[in-house]
Structure formats: C-alpha cells, structure tokens
Design a protein around this nucleic acid. Structure first.
Length: 373
RNA sequence: GCGCCGUUGGUGAAGUGGUUAACACGCUAGUUUGUGGCACUAGUAUGCGUGAGUUCGAUUCUCACACGACGCC
C-alpha cells in the first residue's frame, strides 16, 4: 500500500501538525523521529533494542546497500525487512546525500552521478532510474527520489540549475518506479530561496508523490538559514501529505521545525554521538568521558525510561566507553534514540494541548541554562 | 667489592652547550545533523635522578653520591 497521512490537528499558535501515517507495517503518530540504519542496521543495536525505543519508521541507504551487499542479495533474501529482521516500516534514502558527501562537482552530470566505490575503487554511475530500481528491489516501504543535495554555501545560479536537474531526475525516477507495496517521496530543494522552493514544490506536486521531503538541510548551514528553508518549503506543501525533513536534527532543531510544520525527522546524531561518548538529556548534552562522571552511580537521566537508564550508571557506561567496549556504545545509542523519540512524544502532547510555544520555551531553558548533572 | 651501561612528563621514549624539550600513548576538554562507525581539533614537563664544578650560559661537559640493569670475583 501507499503510505497515507492523516492530519489530526494543527496547533493553534504555530504551523505544528499532529497526525498519523499509515504504512504496510502499522499506523504511527507524527511528529516522528526515524533512527538511521544506513547499512541495514542501526549501528550497534539489534532490532529488538531499536524496537524498545518505540520508533515508527527506520531508515536505510540505497547507495551503501547497492555497493554492499548489492540489491540482488537483499532481493533474494526476500527484501530488506526479512534480510534485516525488521518488521516495521523502512524508508530508504536514494543516495542523494552521498552526492553531497562523496561526489565532487565534476562528477555530477545530467545523466547521473559518477562515484568511485569506497570499497574497491570501481567507477560507478548512479542515475535516478538506477536508484529507484535498487529501491524497488530492496522493497522498503518508502523510496526517495534521487536528488542533488546542494551543500552550503552555494551560488543562486548553481541552485537554480540544480533544482531543475533534481526535478528532471524526480520525473525520470517516477517513470521507472515499479513496486506496488512501496511509496515514493519527492524531495524539495532550492536552498534558502523562497521562489525556488515554491517552484520546486509546485513542480513536484504536479508530478504527484506519496509524500514530500525537504532536502538541502543539515549540510553545514546556519540555523536561521535552515529554519527559513523549512518555512519556505512547508508554506507551499500540500497539507494532506506527510513532510519529512532530511537529516535533521538535534533536539532544538526538531522542536523548531515541528513548529514550522515538519512531520518526520531523521538524524545520525543520536547514534554517532553515542559512539563517541555523548548523550542527550533534558538538561543539555553530556560527554560521558568527562572526569566528573567517574564515580557517578546515577543513570544518564533520572526521568528516562530507556534500557540503559533503567539498568546502568554513568560511571559504568563511562568505563565501557573509555575501554572502547561496544556495549557502552550500544547503551548510549539506545538512550539517545529513545531521548529523541521521547521528545517527539512530548511534542505531540504539546500540540494536542496547543502548548507548543510554552514547551519550546521551557525546553530551551532547561537545555541551555541548567548544567547536565 | 670491581667493571660497564643507564637514570628526560602519568607511560614508552627522541634530542641539543644557548629562543617555545620531538613523537606516540594516556589524561583534560571540545566538535560531529538524508553516517565513507570507533574520527577529528585543542590543551597537557617552569623541567631532563641528587649535589657540586667548568662556562657568559648546562638537561646536554666533568666529579661525587643515590638508584637500576648487566658482567666478573
């Protein structure tokens, strides 16, 4: 089935939306945070551990699974869900972000993007058609259009060209798309230019997608630029389709962009930070390696209900991280993912109560003004 | 007891008669946004075993002592 977005209510004072998204694997509430599992695994965690964090959709990556193990292996395994033993919804990114992170400007052509394999140096060409074919085979629940994720800074001229190319790529991908069970999302580009964002949205909507993403964010732009990009996109996006802001973000960004009308987020932050010893709390971000935690026998966060907080102390997790034990990375990953999901749960409550501005004010006050214990 | 070698930060160590004593690890902080996972950035010896001498100047040369390794009786 195609995903279906149901708008339950818009918050009284802002653009924040409360809704649900119906998928092949159940209906989930939005705003939602998606844990990232690039290589068909949320790094360091088992599916059971991810599940315990109460996520909706999780994310995997077309580019990486294309290179290894190859989409045919996943196909022969019976699809991504069976392959990775995940019985919840999965969204696959198209490889568009790797255009930003791995390719050089000269590698981008009208046909597609030339990559050098990070594993063996092979010359590779990823095209919009190829990206969709791979995703059809991976059999994720949501496929993304292959886009060009433009970095920051950039020139308006370049963004103009790039948006047109991304639109042509979206059309080409849609044409070859062929998987009844799967949905296809279009990606809005246009950087911080309102007219380009508007134009991009209008053209994508003409083509008709099952949901829309806001791209070109989380690439090093200042916060105010990011928020503008989101405003300029949401302003023109249809209300009856889900909105996914790609690559964002940290707790504050999630709150700010929910207020601007975003329904779905994803970010490598919680898992990457965890592997380097950092953890989120309602009182700010902490670094478990700090000497002050040496004999701190309290949980990462008293009010947290995650497995790590219910069973382990900061002193123990600090020991594990310093000893480079993977169990430490696992515990912090569980906590950080659960933290962001808990944040979205609270945001949904705040929208219900029309209290989201108060929630933001209170959150920022706690996050920045109080020291992490 | 004699001979010989050595003694540099928390650790392993490099090095020089003269401005800020290399490097690595550790330690202390920081960074990380559609993931090229365990990376990167910064800080970290007011001192080169102790004492005396030579010298304008010694961690670097000389002597004594202490400590340690090895060899011999």
């Amino acid at each position: 089935m195609k995903v279906k977005y149901n708008l339950i209510k818009e918050e009284k004072n802002t653009k924040a939306r409360l809704g649900t998204i119906e998928t092949n694997y159940g209906t989930y509430d939005t705003p939602m945070f998606m844990p990232v599992g690039t290589q068909a695994t949320v790094k360091t965690l088992s599916p059971e551990e991810v599940k315990a964090c109460n996520p909706g959709i999780i994310l995997a990556n077309t580019y990486h699974l294309w290179l290894r193990p190859g989409e045919d292996v996943v196909d022969h395994a019976g699809g991504l869900h069976k392959f990775m033993n995940w019985d919840g919804p999965i969204l696959t990114d198209s490889g568009g972000f790797q255009v930003f992170s791995l390719a050089k400007p000269k590698d981008i052509t009208e046909e597609g993007v030339h990559f050098k394999s990070i594993y063996n140096g092979d010359e590779l060409l990823l095209t919009p058609e190829k990206s969709i074919e791979i995703q059809n085979k991976l059999d994720s629940d949501i496929a993304m259009s292959f886009d060009e994720c433009v970095g920051f800074p950039h020139t308006r001229e370049y963004v103009e060209e790039s948006v047109e190319r991304t639109l042509r790529w979206a059309e080409r991908g849609k044409k070859v798309f062929n998987n009844e069970r799967q949905s296809l999302f279009g990606i809005v580009q246009g950087a911080e230019y309102e007219d380009l964002r508007k134009h991009c949205v209008e053209e994508l909507v003409k083509m008709g997608f099952d949901g829309y993403s806001i791209g070109g964010t989380a690439v090093g732009e200042p916060k105010d630029v990011q928020y503008k990009q989101v405003e300029y996109s949401c302003k023109y996006l249809p209300k009856d389709k889900v909105r996914y802001l790609m690559g964002v973000g940290d707790p504050i960004d999630i709150i700010e962009n929910v207020i601007r009308g975003v329904d779905i987020f994803d970010c490598v932050g919680p898992t990457r930070l965890a592997r380097h010893g950092h953890f989120y709390t309602m009182h700010g971000k902490g670094n478990i390696k700090n000497a002050k935690y040496k004999e701190d026998f309290t949980p990462l966060e008293d009010e947290c209900d995650c497995y790590a907080c219910k069973n382990y102390t900061k002193a123990y997790i600090r020991h594990l991280i310093r000893a480079e034990e993977t169990f430490g990375q696992r515990l912090l990953s569980i906590h950080n993912i659960r933290f962001l999901i808990r944040l979205t749960e609270e945001l949904r409550e705040a929208i219900k109560e029309d209290q989201i501005l108060e929630y933001r004010e209170n959150f920022i006050k706690n996050y920045y003004e109080e020291e992490s214990k």
